[in-house]
């Protein structure tokens, strides 16, 4: 446990600073503070899904820069299916299937055909943008409305954090469970050990009888499901409709979140909250009309945080060693 603290000291320190600032402001304006925090969690959720997808892929040695595309197309397909069937569950499942299919596609290009992983990911992004824009129809709605918040009884009555953490719609709860699930799988199960070995030294895994291709396919497909959930979150839980380019770079920020979280789901959660908080502050500042003439400067905040964090704090993070390299047996 103590080495976890040391490893994530920057994440923890940053969170503590924000918590302190927040508590300080909460003294004066509790409602507003609660709103900012709730918004931070909402903003962090798609990043979390995307980054958890990234961690599954990269831990097995495959760079996935196609998360943006996976989320975008899943958001689109999920919305279309939910809109056509009237079932949010069907929409969410369709989103997951879309992400998984794209993950399988990425695996096909980068594992079976041993193509360049960056190009394969770019293919996903371009395809997702093209397909979702081409088939998009204006004016569709969700007959059932978007997913509605579920209150967790007495927990929800706690001051500030009750409203932030315990009154949320289902996919948000799911994302919080997935953090621990992915962590458990990666660091406690046999599959996780295999995944990490394949991502570090694939030939070592192969010589003890682990199929590198099977591990990579499975992780890319499972990761695709998570990215698909992230997409479904955007169209079915956060907004309740689909817009062109609605991911708006979140798939790429998710990669930054993954790196800042050091390829570890728990670190990733902290990093996602940080970026979510930066987004929430940005929204809040715009809402208050700061720099109303030049709102783009406020809009920059999350991205500046992203750049500063990546450039400044992540120097020593070590990615999985075999990342980006196609593996062949001979």
């Amino acid at each position: 446990m103590s080495d976890l603290f040391i490893r994530f000291r920057w994440v923890i320190l940053t969170i503590l600073v924000f918590v302190f600032v927040t508590l300080f402001t909460a003294e004066f304006q509790q409602a507003q503070t609660t709103a900012v925090l709730a918004s931070a969690l909402r903003q962090s959720t798609p990043l979390l899904f995307g980054a958890l997808c990234g961690v599954l892929c990269e831990r097995s040695g495959v760079v996935n820069i196609g998360i943006e595309g996976q989320m975008l197309l899943s958001a689109f397909v999920g919305f279309m299916v939910a809109s056509a069937t009237g079932s949010l569950v069907a929409g969410i499942l369709a989103g997951m299937a879309t992400g998984a299919l794209m993950g399988a596609g990425l695996a096909g290009l980068s594992v079976t055909l041993q193509g360049d992983q960056i190009i394969a990911g770019t293919v996903l992004n371009i395809a997702a943008f093209g397909i979702s824009s081409y088939f998009f129809q204006q004016g569709l709605t969700l007959p059932s409305g978007k997913t509605s918040p579920v209150s967790l009884g007495p927990l929800a009555d706690l001051p500030v954090i009750g409203r932030v953490f315990f009154i949320n719609p289902p996919l948000t709860y799911l994302s919080l469970i997935l953090i621990w699930l992915v962590w458990f799988v990666l660091f406690r199960t046999r599959w996780g050990l295999w995944t990490r070995s394949v991502g570090e030294v694939p030939s070592a895994a192969e010589t003890v009888g682990i199929s590198v291709a099977r591990v990579r396919y499975t992780n890319l497909i499972a990761g695709g499901c998570l990215a698909g959930l992230g997409g479904a979150y955007l169209s079915l839980e956060a907004v309740g409709s689909f817009e062109r380019m609605m991911t708006n770079g979140r798939g790429f920020v998710a990669l930054a979140v993954m790196i800042f979280g050091r390829w570890n789901p728990i670190g990733i959660w902290g990093a996602a909250l940080l970026f979510g908080y930066a987004s929430a502050v940005q929204t809040q500042l715009q809402f208050r009309g700061w720099l109303a003439d030049d709102p783009q400067f406020i809009g920059m905040i999350p991205y500046v945080v992203c750049i500063v964090v990546l450039a400044g704090f992540v120097g020593r993070a070590r990615p999985p060693a075999a990342i980006g390299q196609p593996y062949s047996r001979e």
Binding site: R190, W194, S197, E200, V201, A204, I210
Partner: peptide, 19 residues
């Protein structure tokens, strides 16, 4: 054919882990 970031025990049992 070892995974440098894993422990000795993890490397030894890799592929045939006691669970």
């Amino acid at each position: 054919q070892l995974v440098p970031v894993l422990s000795v025990a993890e490397n030894v049992v890799l592929g045939d882990e006691p669970t």
